[in-house]
């Protein structure tokens, strides 16, 4: 099995933002169209990686394994322990959803893999692992209900629009001292552009424009068939704004980050499969 030299990121920190995804995409670009090869991602010199991005790494590993490739992720220090506690290490060892992973410090939110129609397990995950978390104890019941609703809406959005039966990867991270919560949901479906392009009669022709279109409250929903509504990303964006946070969406090789100001967009080194929705909430 051909073995590629380890990819070492050019930064010392990977966070849930455009530069963070660009860094991950630089590695992913090296693996595209390769079969039966081994790739190594060396994070051992990194100072920090947002633990919620374990869902992105798990999805990359899943894609590589579909092409009979192997992914080795080297982690060290505090990052290693965080990714051990959230279950990524055991996932990397081929034991997805190993519930025996002990988080004795109860400071991480586990990585989980769902099918797109697993409503109840996903809700249980939110209740137990996210909002049963010690970092969430300051939240009111109403606040928790709103958060569960927003996260569920994103999950439902995947089911409605991604057009896939492939797994959905979820992970989060709480920073109780900062009152900050990060959540990342990855699907391996169609991404944003395909349906938006169809819905707009071809007027929207880039992934970034399709993401912006959705963030502004538009929807590809067939109202007669599914009932009114849609446009959930706009209300989630508003909610993130209220919490001094942001929603970052990756689709194809584009990303858009919507915080308090105008929507920022950028390019990645290569397209990811499906879409990645990230929420960053502060002042919780």
């Amino acid at each position: 099995m051909p073995f590629h030299p380890a990819y070492i990121p050019t930064t010392t920190s990977i966070e849930t933002n455009g530069p963070g995804f660009r860094e991950l995409s630089k590695f992913y670009a090296k693996t595209l169209n390769k079969t039966g090869e081994t790739f190594e991602l060396d994070f051992s010199k990194m100072n920090h990686i947002d633990a919620n991005l374990a869902s992105v790494l798990a999805s990359i590993k899943y894609r590589l394994e579909q092409r009979r490739c192997k992914l080795i992720v080297r982690l060290a220090g505090a990052t290693f322990y965080t990714f051990k506690r959230n279950g990524f290490i055991s996932y990397s060892n081929g034991k997805p959803n190993d519930l025996s992973v002990a988080d004795e410090r109860e400071s991480t939110i586990p990585l989980r893999v769902f099918r797109p129609d697993e409503d109840e397990p996903f809700t249980q995950y939110l209740k137990k692992d996210f909002f049963g978390h010690r970092g969430a104890t300051a939240l009111t019941k109403t606040e928790v209900d709103r958060l569960i609703n927003h996260f569920s809406e994103i999950y439902q959005n995947v089911f409605m629009h991604a057009n896939t039966t492939e797994p959905v990867f979820a992970c989060g991270q709480f920073f109780p001292s900062k009152g900050e919560l990060k959540f990342t949901l990855v699907d391996l479906g169609d991404g944003f552009l395909k349906k938006v392009h169809e819905k707009t009669g071809g007027q929207i022709s880039s992934e970034a424009s399709a993401i912006q279109w959705a963030l502004l409250g538009n929807t590809t929903r067939d109202v007669a068939k599914f009932g009114p509504g849609g446009g959930v990303l706009k209300s989630i964006r508003e909610y993130c704004k209220q919490h001094n946070g942001s929603i970052l969406i990756v689709s194809g090789a584009d990303y858009c980050n919507a915080g308090a100001g105008p929507i920022e967009s950028g390019k990645l080194a290569c397209p990811f499969s499906g879409s990645i929705v990230n929420l960053v909430l502060r002042n919780l």
Partner: peptide, 10 residues
């Protein structure tokens, strides 16, 4: 136990 807009709208 949980109710979303997606359910209510449909």
């Amino acid at each position: 136990e949980n109710l979303t807009s997606a359910f209510c709208n449909a």
